[in-house]
């Protein structure tokens, strides 16, 4: 228990945790970061290209917090399992490896999990090699791999809303970013495979943030991406090793089928199991993610000194996470100054 010197413990080293750590250390606070994986950067750190910045996720994550920072120490392979309030009002975080760390405040920046696409079995993920998730593609590109290298004129189908807005999987929320990611990925594919055909299958296209609508426009105009309003609900293998897909063109009201080389599933964000705080699972908001104390206290949880930032609260895009993490850092700093 040498960590009493820390002002705050940040759970998670994705872009939310890194941003908050950078802010707090700039304000002279000592920060301990707990990361369950081997390396920092979270989901974004594995993205090959981040919209609208045009840089890789790794670059983006590294630009947030310089590697050597005297005020920040990072413990990787440390999975927080529970939080408890100590008699003096500070908080203790216990990890699955048996260690415990305490500080006056804790910032939960544990992000989200990716939807397990195998649960939508009819889409054939894990059964047919041609079915990939958005995460798979981003990781392969990030590593410099080139899936479907051998195909000439490869046909791609991109399925939106897999594991979002799906009550069959007990998921009601919209994951917000996948619309943009799906369109960005379509343009990406067209750039990497100039002879390819890409069709996006969507229920609704929600191009809500700055630059999204422009991206959509660009995808149609300059990349010739097709958009079909319909949901692919059945996938079968063809004799020549491709994928036979069935949807309905709902705008025309006609059944639609295609044979594609790859089916890319835009998997949504799902909430982690809630951490236990003082023996009770944390409050959840309507979407199942971490709930906050009030409509105004958007970074404080029901427990004093326990803050939350980023996509742990629900689906967010990178810009929103950066802003939210800074706000959480400011709140934490204010709390520590009391």
């Amino acid at each position: 228990m040498n960590s009493n010197h820390n002002d705050t413990i940040i759970i998670g080293t994705g872009i939310a945790g890194l941003t908050a750590a950078a802010e707090l250390s700039a304000r002279g606070r000592k920060v301990l970061m707990l990361e369950k994986n081997d390396s920092t950067g979270g989901h974004v750190g594995q993205w090959s290209v981040c919209f609208p910045f045009g840089i890789s996720g790794r670059e983006l994550a590294e630009s947030i917090l310089p590697q050597s920072n005297a005020n920040v120490s990072i413990r990787t392979r440390s999975t927080a399992s529970a939080i408890s309030t100590l008699p003096d009002g500070s908080l203790s975080v216990s990890c699955t490896d048996g260690t415990a760390h305490s500080a006056r405040t804790v910032l939960l920046a544990s992000g989200y999990g990716m939807f397990d696409a195998r649960l939508k079995e009819e889409l054939g993920y894990g059964i047919y090699p041609g079915v990939l998730t958005s995460e798979d593609i981003e990781r392969q590109w990030q590593k410099g791999e080139r899936p479907l290298a051998g195909h000439s004129n490869p046909r791609f189908a991109i399925v939106h809303c897999v594991g979002s807005r799906d009550l069959k999987c007990n998921i009601r929320h919209c994951s917000k970013v996948c619309c943009m990611v799906g369109v960005k990925m379509a343009t990406e594919i067209r750039q990497r495979y100039p002879d390819s055909q890409v069709t996006n299958y969507y229920m609704d296209l929600r191009m809500f943030d700055n630059g999204y609508e422009e991206l959509y426009h660009d995808a149609q105009l300059n990349y010739n991406v097709q958009f079909v309003r319909g949901r692919i609900s059945e996938v079968a293998p063809t004799n020549d090793g491709r994928l036979y897909i069935r949807a309905e063109d709902t705008l025309l009201g006609k059944p639609l089928r295609d044979k594609v080389d790859a089916l890319v599933l835009m998997i949504g964000m799902s909430a982690h199991e809630p951490l236990h705080v003082d023996g009770e699972p944390m409050n959840r908001s309507i979407n199942g993610f971490v709930g906050t104390a009030s409509p105004v206290q958007i970074n404080l949880t029901a427990t004093p000194g326990l803050f939350v930032a980023g996509a742990a609260k629900g689906p967010m895009n990178i810009t929103e996470v950066l802003a939210d993490a800074r706000a959480a850092a400011a709140e934490t700093d204010k709390y520590l100054s009391r």
């Binding site: 009819e122 229920m203 609704d204 319909g230 949901r231 609900s233 309905e248 063109d249 709902t250 059944p255």
Partner: peptide, 9 residues
Amino acid sequence: ISCGACAAV
């Protein structure tokens, strides 16, 4: 929401 998944299968 008229997504058409029903009609597809």
